[in-house]
Nucleic acid binder design. Structure first.
Length: 518
RNA sequence: GGGCCGUUAGCUCAAUUGGCAGAGCAACUGACUCUUAAUCAGUAGGUUGGAGGUUCGAUUCCUCCACGGCUCACCA
């Protein structure tokens, strides 16, 4: 294989060093290294010992390893900084303390190489914990230079494309993904402790349902049929409720064939959970408990800083959707409406126009209401806020409010100005569900290609009986954004989708049609 | 998809009105056995994202293309 970088002089220099190392009989890529301590372990266990205490245990050498991230040479001595496990430790190689061949090897090392060291710990005169190296082993030779140590890697395109470099050079990036892992771990723990079981449902769906979104299409050759990558696991999870798994959750990817932005990635991670014998108000309480505890466990505080705002998980607010529009109305757009105005399509259109939004044609009152909400309210919802009582047109899978059939028992949770969670009392009346699907199909016929398709098996499942159930989806990526103060969803996804680099596009660059070929 | 902005050495960034393409770090050579972005002296490193155009002359002005960022639309 021809590396694309082989004309790079820095690369060629290192290849020359590699040859020199081999010619001396040293394997630059040995098998393993048995270390006595990870670097975080050393820092934790020895970080508080003073010089005298370290002197006492001087005959107890440690074996540690890591990537060289800094080298400072002094002719007959050299300080190196190793990075491993998210920690860094200094090691000191002195000519009169190591075998001659080890000191010669030092001259062939570069920042980026991996080494292992043996030796006692001591403190330098500036009190830095340091390994006094008695034996040094090359563990892996790097051939390309790492980005600069001081400014790090800031070009976002390179950071996303070559995330491995971003992780090596920018420690806060590593932390973001450690936090992400802990968030998921904590959510599992929270739900497991409440008698939930974790399940895995199909990612390939014959009918893309459970959300309003355009799906990705693929094709199964042997079955000779198209599939959609799932846009939501919802309909499968509720089938499990029908089957008697009263509390289920799933954490996995959804795929939506929509635009990308700082808040949208084509594949994103969602926690969905369903709890029988409960309604959406129970989930509001559960969500409050879950996320407050999560913030506290992850960040050590109920207050987090996000994009210059201070978000407090002690001040949860609740507004009905119409109430929120009246409450957050900007007087610059005219006199604030009263809730009664928000039921009439004509009045809603006038209100939208006064906000300089041209209402789309053929929209129902519910759709206009949703649009008005996004326009007027969304940006104000920095503190954790539940918005509830949604129009039925926007919620084909939710149960209607008993006293108002135009409204459903549904809430969305907003934090930091965007939607984090969406929950409702699940519609379990099979005949009502069938009618709502029919309405969606009519809507599709009018050109709304995000409207639901009819899912007959799902209706059949409901017809066998589903207990009253509440369900919720929480966007994990966005939640992690809030907890790590990340402005873009790409900063919490290890490999966000980008176009291929120029000249390196894949063979599958042309659009894949779902036509079968034998 | 639309609008705006960006792309210069391995990395981070300069370059006046269109006039020899530069610095810091990294690298290389040398000095240096407690440094912390080590220091000092020296050396090398470029098809200025790509293709055209205007011009005596283009990193700079124009057109097209590629990729990215922000934003709007769509959505979660």
């Amino acid at each position: 294989m021809k590396l694309p970088v082989e004309e790079n002089p820095l690369y060629l220099q290192r290849v020359a060093k590699l040859g020199e190392i081999r010619s001396r009989g040293t394997d630059p890529y040995p098998r393993k290294f048995d270390y006595t301590h990870s670097l975080p372990q050393l820092v934790a266990e020895m970080g508080s010992l003073d010089s005298a205490a370290l002197e006492q245990r001087q005959d107890q050498a440690v074996r540690a390893c890591g990537r060289i991230v800094a080298m400072r040479g002094f002719g007959k001595a050299c300080f190196l900084q190793l990075a491993e496990g998210g920690a860094r430790l200094q090691v000191y190689v002195k000519k009169d303390q190591v075998p001659a061949e080890d000191f010669e090897l030092l001259g062939m090392l570069d920042v980026g190489d991996f080494i292992g060291v043996d030796g006692p710990l001591f403190r330098t005169k500036t009190q830095e914990l340091t390994v006094l190296v008695k034996k040094m082993t090359l563990l892996s030779k790097g051939l390309l230079p790492l980005p600069e140590k001081w400014h790090g890697l800031t070009d976002v395109e390179l950071r996303y494309r070559q995330r491995y470099l971003d992780l090596v050079v920018n420690p806060e990036v590593r932390n973001t993904f450690v936090v992400r892992s802990r968030v998921i771990q904590e959510l599992r723990r929270f739900l497991d402790a409440r008698r939930y079981i974790e399940v895995e449902t199909p990612m390939m769906h014959p009918i893309a349902g459970g959300a309003t979104a355009r799906p990705f299409k693929t094709f199964h050759n042997a079955l000779g049929m198209p599939f959609f990558l799932r846009i939501a696991p919802e309909l499968y999870l509720k089938r499990l409720i029908v089957g008697g798994l009263e509390r289920v959750y799933e954490i996995n990817r959804n795929f939506r064939n929509e635009g990308v932005s700082t808040q949208h990635n084509p594949e994103f991670t969602m926690l969905e959970f369903y709890q029988a014998y409960s309604d959406f108000r129970d989930l509001m309480a559960l969500t409050e408990e879950m996320l407050t505890g999560l913030a506290e466990t992850i960040t050590g505080s109920r207050t987090v800083s996000y994009c210059g705002h201070t978000i407090s998980f002690d001040s949860w607010r609740r507004f009905r959707l119409k109430e929120a529009i009246c409450h957050f109305w900007d007087e610059k757009c005219g006199t604030a409406p009263v809730e009664e105005d928000l039921a009439d399509a004509g009045k809603l259109e006038r209100l939208l126009r006064s906000c300089r939004i041209e209402p789309p044609k053929d929209s129902s009152a519910g759709q206009l209401l949703g649009l008005l909400f996004e326009t007027v309210v969304e940006e104000h919802l920095i503190q954790p806020t539940f918005i509830f009582d949604y129009p039925v047109e926007l919620s084909p899978l939710s149960k209607k409010c008993p006293d108002d059939p135009s409204t459903v028992e549904r809430f969305e949770l907003y934090i930091g100005g965007f939607e984090i969670a969406n929950a409702y009392s699940e519609l379990n009346d099979p005949m009502d569900q069938f009618a709502r699907f029919e309405e969606q199909v009519r809507s599709r016929g009018r050109g709304d290609d995000e409207a639901h398709e009819m899912d007959e098996d799902y209706v059949r499942a409901l017809a066998y009986g589903m207990p009253p159930t509440a369900g919720e989806g929480i966007g994990i990526d966005r939640l992690v954004m809030i907890l790590t103060d990340s402005r873009s969803i790409r900063d919490v996804i290890l490999f966000p989708h980008l176009r291929p680099e120029q000249g390196r596009s894949t063979e599958a660059a042309e659009p894949v049609e779902e036509k079968p070929h034998a």
